[in-house]
Computed example of a mutant assay.
Amino acid sequence: MVLLRRVIGDALRARRQGQHRTLREVSSAANVSLGYLSEIERGQKEPSSELLAAICDALGARLSELLREVSDTVALAEQMPGVLVPVTDEPVAAGTVRKATNRGVHQVSSDGSVAVQVRQDSPLKATLRSTRVRPADRDVVCAA
């Protein structure tokens, strides 16, 4: 199961870094402590809707855009077999590609607007990377 707080944190971090802004700048603009914002970005804390709206405002993003990005990432990841569980030789869903490499098993899936790649490093560690197909969008990386 993909943790929502991690996907939200990674999406916020990607937006902040895409603007070449520091945690300090965004935390000051959102009126949230730097440490708490850092914990949110690392997926350790789950922000309230009010706090999430303030952070989005500080980043010049619409809350609906961020939530749509998060929703697309989670929806596509949910369709991928073996995400965050031990990987076996079971068949994979249509539109999903799985290949073994020296750094774990990779799965790639796309719905046309979002591509999700999962690297299963061990039974308890996986890295999920989401990429928007449109060139203006940013990548989101989740590590579990």
Rank of each mutant, 00 (worst) to 15 (best):
L67D: 01
D137I: 00
G35A: 12
E25P: 01
Q17F: 07
L128D: 06
S109D: 02
S49G: 05
D89W: 11
R134A: 10
E25D: 10
L76E: 05
H106G: 00
D137E: 14
A75I: 09
L51F: 03
S110Y: 07
A58Y: 10
T127N: 00
K99T: 00
L84G: 04
L67Q: 10
V116S: 05
R132C: 04
A93P: 11
N31H: 14
A126F: 13
T22Y: 13
A14P: 07
R62P: 02
V114A: 05
A75S: 13
L124E: 15
R138Q: 13
S27F: 03
V114D: 02
I55L: 08
G9L: 03
V85P: 01
V108D: 01
A29L: 14
R21Y: 06
E39M: 15
A58I: 06
L3V: 05
I8W: 14
S38M: 04
V74W: 12
V26W: 11
Q120M: 09
C142W: 15
D111L: 00
D121S: 12
E78F: 07
E69P: 01
V141E: 15
S38W: 15
L59P: 08
L51R: 14
V118I: 09
A11Q: 14
V140N: 03
L12T: 06
R134S: 14
R134E: 09
E78A: 13
S28Q: 13
A144M: 08
R21V: 08
V2Y: 15
R62C: 01
S49K: 06
R138M: 11
S110V: 02
V133E: 06
V118K: 07
P86G: 06
S38I: 02
S130K: 03
V7F: 08
A30G: 06
L51V: 14
L76T: 04
T101D: 01
A126K: 07
V92G: 11
G82V: 05
G104T: 04
I40C: 10
S49H: 07
A136G: 10
M1I: 00
A93W: 11
V140G: 01
V108E: 04
G35Y: 10
Q117R: 04
H106P: 00
S48R: 09
S110C: 12
R42F: 07
A77N: 05
R134K: 11
A115H: 04
P86T: 03
R62T: 00
L63K: 06
V116A: 02
V85F: 09
L23H: 07
M1L: 03
A11G: 05
P91S: 02
V87M: 12
E39F: 08
V26S: 06
R6G: 05
A14Q: 07
P81S: 09
R13M: 10
R16S: 10
V70K: 13
V141F: 03
Q44C: 06
T96G: 05
Q107F: 15
S49D: 11
G60R: 02
A77E: 02
R134Q: 09
T127I: 11
R98V: 00
H106Y: 15
